[in-house]
Design a protein around this nucleic acid. Structure first.
Lengths: 306, 306
DNA sequence: TACACAATTGATGAATCCTCACGCCATTGA
DNA sequence: TCAATGGCGTGAGGATTCATCAATTGTGTA
């Protein structure tokens, strides 16, 4: 070893984790690798260094003398590098363009209210927010991060849940009053227009959960591509929308919307954040994801980042 | 950047070199890469960190503020890791088997005399020396390092020159005296047996350099696979060998061999060390190469190590 | 004795990395 | 002013490295 020209650097990260955990399995879990990958890497490092870093003890491993010496240096060095990288982030040094896509609904109710925090922390990141149909978030290839309502698990992208949503029917007081006899039972909804912001499955689930027959025949249906639009329609008395009981909290307070039924159901979908696989290694996107997930109290989800 | 899970570590080595030289080209030269590779790596690192590390200044490049901060941390960290790796080497911690192949000649005249140094410095390395025909060094796949006489540039292996060799004809005094009229002119050699340790080209070259016609017709020829064997044959008066004027220095002093002609020629070949491409990343082999090259005063050659 | 756990191995497939060829821009010198 | 040169950037390709899978060994536990 006369220079580190030939030291396989990727193995150092793995070694550091393995040394810290004194276990290949736990290191693999931390790094989102297989046990096998860790084993291979340690072996490569051992060959490069020419000495064994671990010794088998029973069915686990412990650091050898050489391993202990090396682990000390490596973990300190890694810490320093990580520290320096973090300092760059925290100092607002991160720059560049960040393209975000989300449905208008999300922009209106959450992003518009909160994004200033992110912009303040990272003044050199130039955010471009594109308001697109919920479904279209997954079709765009020229965005870094997207927010979308759905069931999760989209192909070719990393994604994680931002928040579950409890949905309940909402309508304007005027509509409520205009219905003879009010809305006392789910089946009363068959006489009003049902506002959909999806393909209709959430309403179907709601009727199922409410123990009432579906409204396929009798009720009128109006479909729109955005949850916010559905709320707007509800506000204007066009019909009853099935929306989050918290996102439109302000409207409830102001008396613009009311909840005719006292219960909510967990929506089939939820708000998810998705990230382009190409962008996920870039600092700007990662910072945004971190901020978003932290804001939603989903710190655990951060650890699933590749 | 929340962890260094996603930091591409190989780029750090490149960045460190580029920052130190303030030049991609010089960094590329140091790391034996192309300019392009360096450029790509820096770009990848910049994307991961989210900030530009270099700024263009005219047709060269200088560290940005962020770059300077990061370079400081990275170079220190790399130094620490390198230092730790070196400490393992120097502490004789390097272990494992090392298979070395060389012709008997080299083993007899040099390796046997000097290998104890290496063994002393690295007691945990188990050296296995295999004496094989010169040519066979390049055929063996189960060796780490080989030493061989030849022109260099063997396929699929790393190799470098250990030392040039000046060759001159040698024979025993008895043979010399037995020739009527002695060996005064190159053409006198046509009356003796020429001892070859190669395919005959070195003798041909010698006759050419000496300005004498070749000896293809008249002289007797004896071929053997080892230079040392040729010397032994010369010592026993079998013929005249064309060998290094230094490797058999002891024999000259003891009067066992004499040099009939006062000049030497630079042999076409030279002693080379070759290294298996699989072994060249292993510490044991690298330490051996370093020791060998340093012993032969070929420190420059170390830098050509991949 | 069977089972679960941890690490290892070899082969295969995927991702990364490097190079090549070209392009760009700034400096140099005729 | 116009090549010529030197240093860096870019996109496509091919080679190396890396990670995974599936099977194996060896150790401890029920």
């Amino acid at each position: 070893m006369n220079s580190l020209r030939n030291l396989p650097l990727p193995t150092l990260r793995t070694f550091e984790a393995a040394a810290r955990h004194q276990s290949f399995t736990r290191a693999a879990a931390e790094l989102a690798l297989t046990d096998s990958a860790v084993s291979h890497q340690i072996r490569r490092l051992e060959e490069a260094l020419g000495c064994s870093l671990f010794e088998k003890s029973g069915r686990s491993v412990v650091l050898s003398d050489a391993g202990r010496i090396f682990a000390k240096a490596v973990s300190a060095a890694m810490q320093d590098i990580l520290g320096a990288a973090l300092r760059l982030s925290d100092a607002g040094q991160v720059q560049g363009r960040l393209d975000i896509a989300c449905p208008p609904m999300f922009a209106n109710t959450w992003l518009a209210k909160n994004i200033h925090e992110f912009c303040h922390d990272h003044p050199a990141i130039e955010c471009h927010i594109r308001l697109v149909e919920n479904q279209r978030v997954h079709e765009l290839s020229d965005i870094d991060v997207g927010i979308s309502f759905g069931a999760g698990g989209w192909a070719d992208r990393w994604s994680t849940l931002l928040s579950h949503v409890n949905i309940t029917p909402v309508c304007s007081p005027i509509l409520f009053d205009s219905i003879g006899g009010g809305l006392n039972h789910p089946s009363d909804l068959h006489r009003v227009t049902l506002l959909h912001w999806d393909d209709g499955s959430e309403w179907r689930r709601w009727f199922f959960e409410a123990g009432a027959p579906g409204a396929d025949q009798e009720a009128r249906h109006l479909y729109c591509s955005d949850l916010g639009m559905a709320i707007d329609l509800a506000v204007h008395g066009t019909g009853v929308a099935l929306v989050s009981d918290t996102l439109s909290g302000g409207d409830f307070k102001r008396g613009i919307l009311i909840k005719p039924f006292p219960f909510s159901i967990d929506a089939f979908g939820g708000w998810h954040v998705v990230c382009n696989t190409a962008s996920i290694h870039r600092a700007g996107a990662r910072l945004f994801l971190r901020w978003l997930l932290t804001s939603f109290g989903r710190d655990i989800a951060l650890e699933t980042l590749p």
